[in-house]
Design a binder for these strands. Structure first.
Ligand code: NAD
Ligand code: NAD
Lengths: 220, 220
DNA sequence: TTATTCATGTGAAATGCTTCACAAGAAATT
DNA sequence: AATTTCTTGTGAAGCATTTCACATGAATAA
């Protein structure tokens, strides 16, 4: 809050992903009883260079102590703040099928601040049913309920053929970010953030690697 | 096969991911009745520059016709060959819980050459049960059955606490690639390829973007 | 107190990736 | 047949990211 991020618009996607990795590893270090950790140790666990770790952090401030390293609890809190996971995010899942219901039952999300509070489907057998304490709403009320509840993030797990309609609806309802599992290129206005989760792509990467004996520098 | 890839070890991860995207879009173009496509049109659909599309393809050969573009069917076949999805991959899923069973019921994978042929779990209620025509095997037989069946890829959907044991087993059994859903840094020998699917990371990216008003060049 | 050790934070260099710009070649047009 | 139009394929330039290398400063030990 107090100290503004320097040039925060230019932070790379890779840096943000690495911050997520540091956060998870810091949680682990905390459990293991470490009080401090060096960029060297953190780098070793992530298979990165110590310079990379320090550079990533340096975009956001100076969090370490020379000669000692970083305070585990403090750095974890700081990264949580940077990532915005020190707050309560209201999330809805649209399409309570195979993947959708798997996500709903995943407890780890709420521990990271992502609280699934609304579920939607168009299947009469699913509407009204209870998943982990949440009753599935009729998709007809999508826009209205999302807006009323102040949902900020939406996870799309409907068939690709209807995904764009869902997006158009939730965008109108004021949603700020969408995580999409349908294998299709969705259109969103520039003020809405969109990420795609594509499992086929990862399998294809592995296939390519095997067939071509691929040995890249960073096999993330 | 005949024409060897030029310096194929140095192809970037991004290029390979984009090849997957081109492949999917070419399938769509084919359905829409297009016979040819230009780098300009392909780029527009992926929100890339035409130069990027041409450069990506140029690493693997010359597939286009000047003044005309690329033959949709031909280019799709060529990319399929490059990615290694023009063949039959034997895949096993380890851990038939929420995510694992969602993956098993996903038909799209087999259309891309990834055939899930073995399922494993340690839960007596699940062992012997039938998922989409496949009977769940006892995890005790993991190494033996993977080796016997010649499974080359494995998807890990067990709790993080036991994921490394599964990896060690399947590595011994000769598996070449692993797609891991457990939120943990797994160790594999250098001849085995590993990719991690991490949904929390994507939600965290969205959280960061909202909180910081992030506007990167490439929001993939 | 002073010396030594350790590890950060950061400009600068090195490396990697994307875009530019244009020659070359194929198709369509006159 | 010649000309125009179109789009590829690719060195080179431009930009972005990673790594190097070291001055700086804190902690620890003597
Ligand atoms: N299952 C997987 O492992 C997997 C993997 C990768 C991608 N995906 C993608 O995720 C999406 C969901 O996959 P799935 O396997 O869970 O499918 P699914 O058919 O099990 O689930 C889809 C759900 O969406 C609901 N739905 C359909 N039309 C709707 C509409 N108009 N409004 C509201 N709800 C509607 C259905 O009732 C169903 O509950 C698909 O786009 C799929 O391609 C799935
Ligand atoms: N469900 C999600 O949406 C989600 C999202 C992201 C990541 N993940 C990760 O995916 C993994 C699976 O998640 P899930 O929600 O499907 O959990 P789950 O508990 O539903 O499934 C885990 C399965 O693994 C089996 N298992 C446990 N120990 C085993 C062993 N030693 N050998 C063989 N099988 C064993 C269990 O019997 C169960 O069927 C976890 O690591 C989780 O963190 C899940």
């Amino acid at each position: 809050m107090s100290s503004e991020l320097p040039d925060k618009k230019r932070i790379s996607e890779s840096t943000i992903h690495r911050l997520s990795m540091y956060f998870r590893t810091l949680s682990l270090l905390q459990k293991e009883g470490y009080e401090t950790v060096s960029s060297k140790e953190l780098a070793k666990r992530e298979k990165l260079t110590p310079a990379q770790v320090r550079k990533d952090l340096s975009f956001f401030g100076s969090f370490g102590t020379r000669g000692l390293g970083y305070d585990v609890v403090e750095l974890k809190a700081k990264i949580g703040e940077i990532l915005g996971i020190d707050r309560h995010w209201k999330v809805a899942v649209i399409g309570i099928g195979n993947i959708g219901s798997a996500l709903v039952s995943y407890k780890e999300f709420s521990r990271q601040g992502f609280h699934i509070e609304k579920l939607f489907d168009n299947d009469q057998r699913k509407i009204g049913s209870n998943h982990k304490g949440i009753v599935v709403s009729d998709i007809k009320n999508l826009e209205k309920e999302i807006a009323e509840d102040g949902i900020e993030m939406v996870i799309i797990t409907v068939p690709a053929t209807v995904a764009q309609y869902m997006v158009d609806d939730v965008v109108r309802a004021g949603v700020k970010a969408i995580l999409n599992f349908a294998p299709i290129n969705l259109k969103v206005p520039s003020h809405v953030y969109l990420r795609n989760e594509n499992m086929s792509m990862e399998l294809e990467y592995l296939s390519f690697a095997i067939v071509n004996n691929h040995t890249p520098k960073n096999m993330k």
